[in-house]
Write a protein that binds this DNA or RNA. Sequence first.
DNA 1: TTGAAAGCGCTAACAG
DNA 2: CTGTTAGCGCTTTCAA
Lengths: 332, 332
Amino acid sequence: MAVTLRDVARAAGVSPATASRALSAPDLVAPERRELVQRVARELGYRPNRAARELITGRSGHLCLVVPDLENPFFSAVAKAVQARARGAGHAVVVADAEEDPLLEAELVAQLGAQADGVLLCSPRMSAEDLADVAAGDRPVLLVNREGAGLPSVVVDNGDGVRQAVRHLRALGHRRVAYAGGPAGSWSDARRRDGLATAGVDVEVVDLGAHAPVFAGGVAAADLALASGATAVLAHNDLVALGVLDRLRTRGVRVPDDVSVVGFDDAPVATLVTPALTTVAVPLARLGRTAVDLLLAPRDDAAPRTVLPVELVVRGSTAPPPDRRPDLVEPR
Amino acid sequence: MAVTLRDVARAAGVSPATASRALSAPDLVAPERRELVQRVARELGYRPNRAARELITGRSGHLCLVVPDLENPFFSAVAKAVQARARGAGHAVVVADAEEDPLLEAELVAQLGAQADGVLLCSPRMSAEDLADVAAGDRPVLLVNREGAGLPSVVVDNGDGVRQAVRHLRALGHRRVAYAGGPAGSWSDARRRDGLATAGVDVEVVDLGAHAPVFAGGVAAADLALASGATAVLAHNDLVALGVLDRLRTRGVRVPDDVSVVGFDDAPVATLVTPALTTVAVPLARLGRTAVDLLLAPRDDAAPRTVLPVELVVRGSTAPPPDRRPDLVEPR
DNA sequence: TTGAAAGCGCTAACAG
DNA sequence: CTGTTAGCGCTTTCAA
C-alpha cells in the first residue's frame, strides 16, 4: 500500500490535519513543525492521493484537451505546448482526439470534461448549439482557434494572415489567386474568407471550395486551381499546401516558376519540402501556452477574447507569375 | 451541483447500494429494479464521480502515456491510436511529453503514473536502472518500442527492417551504404545496428554516428554521408531521411540519381516530399492499439514481449547507383 | 435480492 | 497555531 498522509502524520508526531496543512498550506503551520513534516513526507516517499483530494476540493489537477486530429501537426504542436505549460502549473493533461467528428467531439467534452478542472477545445468542429451546451456546464471552457458561445478564446489574426499573403502575391505581380479552403464548418476558414474579401488590393480571388485540412485535400484542390487559371494558390493550411505542391509537380507544373503556393500555420513540415513553403506563421506554442494561462487564470471579468498576431514567412514556393518573368526561357 | 448516486437512488426509491449495483454490477439486481434505476440515471443525466470511485476501487480510469516528443509524427501517430483504443476500453489517456529528456521522463512516470491504471512508456530514453525503478512500482507498465527491465513490451522487428532495406539497396546495385543513426541511448537504434551487422549481404555499412531523430539531425548526417563515399543512406527515421534529402538537394546531389535515401517508420511525412521516401513501414496504429490491449489484459503469464512485423515500402528515393547506370547522360 | 453501515484519503470548518 | 470532527461520492462487506 502507498504511504498515506496518516502515516506521515504519525511518523512526524502530529495530527493528520497539521500534516495536511504543512504540505498544502505551509503558511498555517509553525516553521519547525512544517519542515519536520515536509522532511518526513519526503523520506517516506509520500505522494498525495489525487482522488481523495479531488473528492473534497473538487479539483482534479487535470485539464482536458480536445483536438480534431492528433496527427495533424498543427494540433500536435498545440498539444505539446499545452502539456508543457499545464505541467508547469501542476496539472496533467487528458488528451482526446475527436477524429474530425463533431458528434464524438461533443461526447468527449461531456465525458472527459466533467471531471477536469477545465477544458481546452481546440478548433472544435461542433455546431454553435453544441458549443453553447458545452459552455453551459459549470467547469471553465476555453476555445482555441475558434470564437463563439460567449466563451473565452485564443485565436490568431486569420484575416491579417490572408491579407499579408495576398499582398505578398500582389507585390510579386499575381492578379488572380485561388483559395483552397478548409473543411466546411471551420471557423478559422470563415475568418480567412472574410479577410480575403477585405484584402483591399487589386487581386481577383477564386474560391476553390472546401477541402479536408490534409494532404489529400490539397491534391484535389490543385487540379481546380490549375483549371481556374490562377497563378497562385493560397491554401487553408500547410498540409493542404503540400498536397497542392505535390499534385502540381505530378502534372508537370513548376513551383514557383509557373504557380506560386502559400500555406498557413508554418507547421514543422513547411520546411521539410522543396521548395520550402511560403506560409503564414502561426505562433503555435504560444497559442497553447496562452490557452492554459487563460483557462487557469481567475475569471474576473467577461470572457476574454485574445487574438495573437501572425506573420508571413516568405520561402521558396512563391515568385512572380510567368507573365511577369519575360526572362524565362520557356514562358509557357 | 452534479447529480449523485444518492439522487438517483432517491428518485428510484431504492437504497444507494442498490443503485450502485444496478449500474456497476447489473447481475446482482432484480431485472425490473435494475432497469428502473438505469432509466432514472439516464433521465437525470447521472455521471459517476470518478474520484469517488477511484478512492474505493483504486482504479482511476486513466492510462498514462509518456512520449519523448509529441511533435514527432511517430509519437503522435502512436498517441492517436492509444487514445482511440483506450477510449474504447473506457479509459482516458493522460499524455506527457518528456522533451527527449531522460530525467524529466522518469519524473513524469513517477508523478503521473502513480495515479493511473497503467503506464505506456513509448521509446523511453531513460537508463536501464531508471527503467528498473519504474518497473518496481505496483501499477502495470508497458514498454513501446523498447524492451528491458523484465517489462512487457511491444516493439517492431527493427533488425528485419534494416535487413529488408539493405537487401533492397543491394539488389539495386549499391555496395556501400551509410547509416545515419538515431540518438545515443535509443534502444531501437541499437537493434537496427545489430540488424545491419547481420544483414548477410555483400554490402559495406558506414556508420555515420548518432543524430537527433529530427530533420536537423538528417541535415548534419547528409554531409557525412557524402564524404563517406556511400551511394545510399539509410536513416534512423523518416524525419532524419527528410533532412538528408534536403541537404543533398542543397548541395546539388540528386536523389535518387546520385544517392539513394531510405527512411524508417513510414510516417505520414514520407509521402509529402518529392521524391517520396522509400522507407520501412512500421504499423504505428497497431503498435498503439496492441500496447493498450496488452496493458489492460490480465497479466497471467510472464511479461509478454510482442514483436510486430515491418515492411519495406519502395518509393521514389531509391534507385541504382550512378556506376550502375551507364545510360546516364552525366554519370558524375 | 436488498439495505444499513463503514470507510477509501484527504481537507475544511470549528474549537481550543 | 493545532487537534478534533465530519464528510466529499462511491463501493462493499455484512445481515436481513
